[in-house]
């Protein structure tokens, strides 16, 4: 048997109808694995935030969820503008989302700090003009 299972998701730019489907399907798998509700919650909240970041700021991208025996690794990569100042982006309430997106109730900042709060490990790789990759680890 394999030591892990990978699921790959396409994340479409500004597609608010199917946004969140990747985290929903990860949630379903975690429930089938019998992972504790508290862990599921942390995984889903962080993945959802990261997915929405890619939808709103990142011009879409790809999501990967790799399930291991004792943890899950979530990678969200986008081809967006990149983050100029990661430290600033990590501050609560800081946002670069355009007004129309904020009116929809998204993009009020909190994305990255919220992911950090809910995950066991968060790695951010970003290059201005190229894109951003988040690697989120959550232990079962």
């Amino acid at each position: 048997m394999n030591q892990s299972m990978v699921k790959v998701f396409d994340i479409q730019k500004d597609d608010f109808i199917s946004a969140g489907e990747a985290s929903s399907s990860v949630k379903k798998i975690l429930k089938q694995l019998g992972v504790s509700p508290e862990v599921i919650k942390r995984a889903v909240i962080s993945m959802y935030e990261a997915e929405m970041n890619a939808v709103i700021h990142g011009g879409g991208g790809k999501g990967y969820a790799e399930f291991f025996k004792e943890h899950i690794e979530i990678i969200i990569e986008d081809n967006g503008p990149g983050i100029e100042n990661i430290e600033l982006a990590m501050q609560e309430g800081y946002s670069t989302a355009p007004g129309n997106i904020r009116e929809m109730g998204f993009g009020a900042g909190m994305g990255l700090p919220n992911i950090k709060k809910h995950s066991d490990q968060l790695e951010i790789k970003s290059e201005v003009g190229k894109g951003t990759t988040l690697k989120i680890t959550i232990n079962f």
Binding site: N2, Q3, M5, Q32, L33, G34, F67, K69
Partner: peptide, 20 residues
Amino acid sequence: FPSSVLKLDDDVMIALGKIE
């Protein structure tokens, strides 16, 4: 308590195999 009817197996690795 939560119900466990959605769970595929008590062992995570076996459950993963079943999902695949």
